[in-house]
Amino acid sequence: MNGYNFAYLDEQTKRMIRRAILKAVAIPGHQVPFGSREMPLPYGWGTGGIQVTASVLGANDTLKVIDQGADDTTNAVSIRRFFARTAGVATTTHTAEATVIQTRHRIPEHPLREDQILVYQVPQPEPLFKLEPSRAEARRMHGLAEYGLMHVKLYEDITRYGHVSISYDYPVMVGGRYLMSPSPIPAFDNPKMHMMPALQLFGAGREKRIYAIPPYTRVESLDFEDHPFRATRAPHACGLCGAEDSYLDEVVTDDKGGRLFVCSDTDHCETRRADGHTGTELAA
């Protein structure tokens, strides 16, 4: 293991983080402060997610790391290799085979199970960050469950645009009590959090906060009765596998305006293609 403790962090740190995680699980959606450590990569690159993963990882776990749905981006690859080196755990790109999945800004398309843990990388844990400049007042609002301000923001969106304009990091109410930022996942992914069988952990390294959603917890996206929440996606099929219900990335293919829509979740797309599904791009 090259002289590192298992999963890089020392045992005392992991203990501290696990205590924070326990608190977070006990109060779903509530942000728990923790002593975020200096990691071998700067703030803004996933240090929170990495610390949470490091604290829950065991020798027998299988780890998957995705970045905007893809296993093969530079960051996903680096983080996966980091844990392979410092923890010696098995790694995979297949959602169904993983026991711990660390993700940046997406939830896998394949439904998760009770024996899996999903770890989200969170840049800004405070859902009221842009609405209430005072941190103290924001904490008071959480403490007193005074969330009128967030509804005002949604009201303003509908007034200005005719619909809520939030397309990612769409605020949710957890367990009917805490307002939570789900991290910058697309609004499309929000419904997956509701009553998910897997444990969902959220780590913000720079902001030094951890929060959690225990399995089978109510997670509801904020909306109005006459403007209900809609999970929106690009109205296309994946050009590679033909999926019509997965979240799509838009890829610019040439300088003549050519576009290709493909599944953002690379494992999902590959698996479908292996099963024989094809999209228009491959069929052509």
């Binding site: 009128g148 509804h151 005002v152 009201y155 303003e156 509908i158 007034t159 109005f224 009765e225 006459d226």
Partner: peptide, 27 residues
């Protein structure tokens, strides 16, 4: 007052804080 929120939003805020969830009637 919230200077960055519309007049309607300012007036509706107390209603929303009390649990009103129908955009049309709040407006």
């Amino acid at each position: 007052l919230r200077m960055g929120v519309s007049a309607g939003g300012n007036v509706g805020e107390r209603l929303m804080a009390q649990g009103s969830r129908h955009y049309g009637s709040i407006r």
